[in-house]
């Protein structure tokens, strides 16, 4: 392995080879598939894409997707912050277990996530009597999908904020206390501004993850057209029904939204570096 700092012809060659391998790998694995989507979606022209995107089903699905993602963002931002504060600033019995549990949504299969809420709220489920007596439905309805979306995107805010909170230490907060600031004032004026970049970062990841969820909401929501069909479910149905332009266009839209999210992230990173 060569280093940037080590001069010499031989190293330059090995350097070139390694860079070449990596660039080729990333291009073939990631860039080419992403780019392949574009000509395919536009194969029937721009008008067809726009027409398929403004169809009622597509719009209803997109609205539900964005709504679910926004709810997940708000809830996980608040609870993610609370979790991060508790895990970084407090010591209690079982803390390491809690710390590990937060990672579970990263690795539990989306199908199992949907299934979990199906078991919990569905027929003979533990919470079925409670929900029935309150008179609303969770399974095959939006509350179930909301729970699933919150679950899959739960760790992001917490995981982004924790290291920053840790690094920030408590001295800034103590300084604020000695200057007469109350706990609340200190949180809003010192702690929160200190982690705002990480929070933004976590929120963006939460949003992207929530927008893209598919398996979990399929299982718990039942993919009822016009009711519990999100954009990803709409794409899936479109492909099965051979409405290819509709499917590809919606996929392109989601990809573009994800891409925009990513650019936003990069920009916030850049600004961070500048400061």
């Amino acid at each position: 392995m060569a280093t940037a700092a080590s001069p010499g012809k031989r190293m330059a060659t090995s350097q070139k080879v390694l860079i070449g391998i990596v660039v080729l790998y990333v291009t073939l694995l990631v860039a080419v598939p992403v780019l392949a989507l574009f000509p395919k979606a536009f194969s029937h022209g721009l008008v067809a894409v726009v027409q398929s995107l403004v169809q009622k089903d597509a719009l209803v699905a997109l609205r539900l997707t964005v709504l679910l993602a926004l709810i997940a963002v708000v809830i996980n931002a608040v609870f993610g912050l609370v979790l991060a504060m508790v895990l970084v600033r407090q010591n209690f019995w079982g803390k390491s277990v809690v710390n590990a549990i937060i990672n579970l949504p990263f690795v539990v299969s989306p199908v199992i996530v949907g299934f979990m809420f199906l078991v919990l709220f569905g027929k003979n489920g533990w919470f079925e009597p409670v929900v029935n007596s309150l008179g609303f439905r969770v399974v095959f309805s939006w509350p179930g999908m909301m729970l699933a979306t919150i679950f899959v995107s739960l760790p992001f805010v917490c995981r982004e904020v924790m290291p920053v909170l840790q690094e920030q230490g408590i001295e800034h907060e103590q300084a604020a206390y000695t200057l007469g600031a109350s706990r609340w004032q200190t949180f809003w004026r010192v702690t929160l501004p200190g982690v705002r970049r990480a929070l933004l970062y976590g929120v963006t990841l939460t949003f992207a993850r929530a927008m893209g969820e598919f398996g979990a909401i399929m299982v718990v929501g039942g993919a009822l057209i016009g009711k519990t069909e999100t954009s990803t479910l709409y794409i899936f149905r479109a492909l099965e029904e051979r409405m290819y332009v509709a499917g590809y266009s919606a996929a392109l839209l989601l990809a573009v939204i994800s891409f925009a999210t990513l650019i936003l992230l990069e920009l916030s990173k850049r600004r961070e570096v500048k400061d």
Partner: peptide, 14 residues
């Protein structure tokens, strides 16, 4: 109401 100066200064960076 004691003024405290920290070794690391603990200035608010933002």
């Amino acid at each position: 109401g004691a003024g405290f100066v920290f070794q690391s200064y603990a200035l608010f960076k933002h």
